[in-house]
Amino acid sequence: MSHLTKSNEAFWWSLFSAGGVMAALFVPVIIFVTGFVLPFMMGDDLESQYDRMQGLITMWPTRVALFGVIFLSFFHCAHRIRHILMDFGVRWAGVALLILCYGGAVAGTVVAGVVLARF
């Protein structure tokens, strides 16, 4: 080939892949457990439900696990949106698109981190 462009796509793709696994496997489980199983088990007392859920989330292993799921899902989403936009012909935006998409994922990750740390 006449010229090759060195790529760092492997880095973004690895986050995208890991995020895909999170979004496909763990997010449905989290929704199922927190949205259906726990509320059914806890009965109708909303206040105690909230307290117990808060107790669960304030445990450090839960915070770390949730942070992992949220952070990787953000990067999965950012990578997919970037590539969809590129497929629609926004290749010309290049670095700006990269900053916008992954910058959004970084921002989301920071917010998630702060919220989880303060919970």
């Binding site: 080939m1 090759l4 462009t5 060195k6 790529s7 796509e9 492997a10 793709w13 590539h83």
Partner: peptide, 14 residues
Amino acid sequence: QDIMGAEEGVWGCA
């Protein structure tokens, strides 16, 4: 690896 790992290589595939 140089060609496989380039923009024009596997990373071009959508």
